[in-house]
Simulated scan of single mutants.
Amino acid sequence: MTRNSDRCPSHPGALLREDIIPAIGKPKTEIAALLGISRQHLYDIMAEKKPVSPEVAVRLAKMFGGAPLVWVRMQGAYDAWHAARAVDVSGVPTLFAAE
């Protein structure tokens, strides 16, 4: 099964907002405090205004289980998808290793 390359990967904040935090049933302010980040920082991540940094990824993995790399990869996929559409690479040549 291949992923549609025209579809933007989910921002980790969407996963938090739509699935994880509602399933936990705790207020967002309490989640932010338990994570050791400000309420505004958590809200910005959930609104997809801020990325999940590696430091926050470690905290999310500890709180909700799993590995920090899952969060980092999710953020990286989201960022790379947007960069591939925003950065003009028409003047950058493609180089190949000499044989």
Rank of each mutant, 00 (worst) to 15 (best):
A77I: 00
R17P: 01
G76A: 15
Y43I: 10
E30K: 13
R7A: 14
A98V: 12
K62V: 04
A67M: 09
V89P: 00
V70F: 15
P51D: 15
D19P: 01
T2D: 15
K50W: 06
V70A: 15
G65Q: 10
L35T: 01
L95K: 10
L69I: 11
R39E: 15
G65D: 08
W81T: 02
M46L: 07
V87H: 12
W71G: 02
W81V: 02
Q75I: 03
A98G: 04
V56G: 03
I37Y: 04
A98Y: 01
V52S: 07
V52P: 03
H11S: 08
R17W: 10
I37D: 00
A47G: 11
E99N: 04
P68W: 06
M1L: 10
E48W: 06
P22C: 02
P9H: 08
S5K: 13
T94W: 06
P93L: 11
V52E: 13
M46K: 03
S38C: 03
K62A: 12
A47Q: 12
P22N: 06
A32W: 09
G13V: 09
T2K: 13
S10W: 04
A33R: 15
D44S: 13
G36S: 08
Q40Y: 02
S10H: 10
N4A: 11
S10E: 15
F96I: 08
I31A: 03
A97W: 07
Q40P: 00
R3K: 12
V92Q: 12
P51L: 12
I21W: 08
A23Q: 12
M46F: 06
H41K: 04
K26D: 14
V52R: 11
